[in-house]
Amino acid sequence: MTKCLTVDVGPSDVQGETRIRRSVLSAKRLMSSPTDDVKTLYDVFNYSVKVRPNLNAIGYRKVVKIVEEEKEVTKMVGGEEVKEKKTWRFFKMSGYHWLTYKDAKAVVDSIGCGLRKFGVQPKEKITVFGATR
């Protein structure tokens, strides 16, 4: 038997719409956090580690193969059609690999320790940049 974690709330007769569903923990009002001591994103993460340490948290896929395909495309340049060759890249990806919440916590804490070692102070802002092609 499956335990239902949500309940119907609000009006039931709105034409073309289904009823609103809320968590059984907050059927009367919206919650801003699962418990009173959860205030930050890091708190949310730690709460998740505590209540579901062995469930999948972060999934990633690896690039198995890069396929390049060259095609001729037609563009309008200065009101005239111009043909040019363009190379398209497609990525063949693996299936998902998963980190549990417990394993993800080890990674998150390691990154945090590294940032502190580089001199980043609590509540200091950082920018994460990743180049794309």
Rank of each mutant, 00 (worst) to 15 (best):
Q15E: 14
S48E: 10
Y96N: 13
L55E: 12
V63E: 05
T127K: 12
C4M: 13
S23P: 00
V77E: 11
T40I: 07
K117M: 13
V63Y: 02
P34Y: 01
A104I: 04
H97L: 10
G59N: 00
K71F: 07
V73W: 05
D8V: 02
V120N: 04
K92I: 13
I20G: 00
V44F: 07
S26A: 11
S12T: 05
T100H: 05
A57N: 06
L55H: 11
A27C: 07
K62V: 12
S12R: 11
D37I: 01
R19L: 00
M93V: 06
V107S: 01
S110T: 15
A57S: 12
L99Y: 15
E68S: 13
F129M: 09
K86H: 12
P34L: 00
S12D: 14
L99E: 01
I111K: 04
E70S: 10
C113E: 15
I126A: 07
L5F: 10
D13V: 06
K117H: 14
W98L: 04
T18W: 05
V120L: 08
V24C: 09
I111N: 07
G59C: 03
A104S: 13
K86M: 13
L41H: 07
G59S: 02
T100V: 09
P34C: 00
A106N: 15
T127I: 13
G95M: 05
T40P: 04
E124K: 05
R19E: 01
V67H: 12
F129T: 10
D43P: 03
K105I: 10
L25N: 11
Y60I: 04
G114Y: 08
A104V: 04
E68M: 09
V7N: 03
M76L: 12
L30K: 09
V14R: 11
M1V: 15
D109Y: 06
E80R: 11
G79W: 06
L55V: 09
V64I: 15
F91Y: 15
S33Q: 03
